[in-house]
Amino acid sequence: MKAEIISKLNTYITSEILKRPDKTLSATEALISGGLIDSFSLVDLSLFVEQAWSVRLDDTELNAETFDTLEQLAGLIEARAS
């Protein structure tokens, strides 16, 4: 389940945000603090998560402290979707 979420997030981020569909992100790469995702893309990402899994990410949760890696984000989604 988690691996599936990670793969789906990976596809969305590389193609829509990074515009580098050929790239693969590692599950533990720092996305926000590493500068890959800016604050605007973060809102887009949360809209995507909402659409894809019907999981609401609160405005106050869009930061590196709540999740910074695909692993952490997938964990959050998994926990809320169930």
């Binding site: 500068g35 809102v43 405005d59 869009l62």
Partner: peptide, 25 residues
């Protein structure tokens, strides 16, 4: 962008959480 992720972080995060994110959404 990274500068503003590391300058007065707690204020920038406050504004992101309570203004920027809802407004952009």
């Amino acid at each position: 962008t990274q500068f503003w992720n590391s300058w007065h972080i707690t204020l920038a995060q406050w504004f992101r959480a309570y203004f920027f994110n809802p407004f952009t959404r």
